[in-house]
Amino acid sequence: MSATRNPLHPGRDAVRDKGWLAAHRYLILRRVSQLGILLLFMTGPWFGLWIAKGNLASSLTLDILPLTDPYLFVQSLAAGFMPASAALIGAAIVIAFYALFGGRLYCAWVCPVNVVTDAAAWLRRRLGLKSGRAPDGNTRYWVLAGSLLLAAFTGTLMWEVVNPVSILQRSLIFGLSGSLAVVLAIFAYDLLVASRGWCGHLCPMGAFYGLLGQKSLVRITADQRGKCDDCMDCFAVCPEPQVIRPALKKAGQDSPLILDADCTNCGRCIDVCNKHVFHFTHRFDQRSDS
């Protein structure tokens, strides 16, 4: 079967060959994960059954497991405040988890803004929009550095006043108003101005988690890259398309592993490939068919 290049409908071949469910496996799992994590916080206020308390900034699960967002922790440090031990332990646990399993796992499997930007990317693709221009992908690191400098100069968590990730997850969990404007702004930006603009180019939180997981174990491999028929579907759906080429096309590396820290481990490339080129594996698995 030759590749049918259809940039408006990537994954059509995969749906035909693997079935709809298999062609959306990781997408569904991710949505279940993102929604499920929010629901863990909601069973308490809704049914009085407390599983996780607090929100993604800092939480206490089953009255025993403290978790604290390390990016917020670092902002507090930059603002000149040393958080107490509960936050320190919580941040250490989160750092260890993402350093091990992939930093930007947070972006693809936890962050609720991902649903917004995925929706914008889907619509932009469907409408065939090419408008606007994305900023350089490194802008996020400048925003990250700037957010910490801002905290240092003002002595407060200034970025948290506008951080869309914090605002959205907090508003959802605590039923607060005020997040709609933020969601619409990001959706409009990603739809009309920059493809994958927010998560892939600007978000300092994603940049931070990316740095955390640079040496993480869980990786996606293009171990069956010999079967690639250049249909470009994986590039069309990938939120960070630049990470695929080195592994798939041996550009600058021999390893079939996607080793770029920008990869969010979302698994969408696995979903849409009808040639079964990609698989989840660990970073020491160098097996490859070519």
Binding site: G44, P45, K53, G54, N55, A57, S58, S59, L60, T68, D69, L72, F73, S76, A79, G80, F81, P83, A87, A151, G155, T156, L157, E160, S166, R170, I173, F174
Partner: peptide, 16 residues
């Protein structure tokens, strides 16, 4: 000022 450097806006106090 110190509070705004220390509070991570997690809402655990609100919940408890």
């Amino acid at each position: 000022p110190d509070f705004l450097a220390a509070c991570v806006r997690c809402g655990l106090c609100v919940r408890d």
